[in-house]
Design a protein around this nucleic acid. Structure first.
Ligand SMILES: [Zn+2]
Ligand SMILES: [Zn+2]
Ligand SMILES: [Zn+2]
Ligand SMILES: [Zn+2]
Lengths: 122, 122
DNA sequence: ACCCATAATGAAAATGGTTGTCATTTTCAT
DNA sequence: ATGAAAATGACAACCATTTTCATTATGGGT
């Protein structure tokens, strides 16, 4: 029966596209007339992470954010002033992370990387 | 005057050696007859992070942990299981960030990048 | 269809790290 | 010494997440 809430949450993540926090997801789902409780969203996300259908990361402030596993992986260039965001190709980073991890005997390697600055308009 | 609490906290971090949470640090400091409030520990850590004297990372549960940081810019490879940390040379990343930013007309470019995985011992 | 054991759900309360408030204390220049 | 400004810390507020617990849905056995 947890199947139902799991697929609701997965659908929500698809709709969102990229990362979303549990609470954002809860809002999105209920906005679209999918009645689901916040607790259940947390539980569904937890089990989806356990079965590796969903990735979990942490924002700088410590809040957990989730995304579909296998969603196209990319990185962001964000303007510190106006928030404008550009999606960046990160092939170099993927190699760097894999290689650095492997050289040090690590497995299950993941990474985070963000670029920030001031955009031309600001 | 924040100098005083900052150096107390730095001393605490030295004593601890590796990573410590704000609350652990608060305990350690007061155990060693350094009377300092928890709020002040948080503030000192915050300002030390701002001035890049201290690194901040997140445990899996989202709690912030801190440690002394060398002056040279570098990145981290962290074990998700035991917390073991390796400092990584990030020349590739610096170039990637600078170039991606410049290509999109951004200036004052900075970046964050972390690698995580499971270490050989775990 | 009916029972019942079991799992799922979600509202509300509890938890816990972190941040905000504000009165008090310390520092420092005059 | 005096006042302004910065620093401090006890306490309360905040907020994401977890725990409780009462209710509801599910599904197999009869
Ligand atoms: Zn901008
Ligand atoms: Zn994106
Ligand atoms: Zn990447
Ligand atoms: Zn390890």
């Amino acid at each position: 029966m947890s199947k139902k809430s799991n697929s609701k949450v997965l659908a929500g993540l698809e709709r969102v596209g990229g990362f979303a926090s549990a609470q954002e997801l809860h809002l999105v789902l209920n906005r679209d007339s999918e009645s689901i409780g916040l607790t259940t969203v947390y539980r569904a996300l937890q089990s989806l992470v356990d079965e590796k259908a969903v990735d979990i990361l942490r924002k700088e402030d410590g809040e957990a954010i989730f995304r579909l596993c296998g969603a196209t992986h990319h990185h962001h260039l964000v303007c510190k002033s106006c928030g404008k965001t550009v999606e960046i190709e990160g092939g170099v980073i993927e190699k760097w992370a894999e290689q650095s991890g492997a050289e040090n005997g690590f497995r299950d390697i993941g990474h985070t990387a963000e670029i920030f600055g001031i955009c031309a308009a600001c």
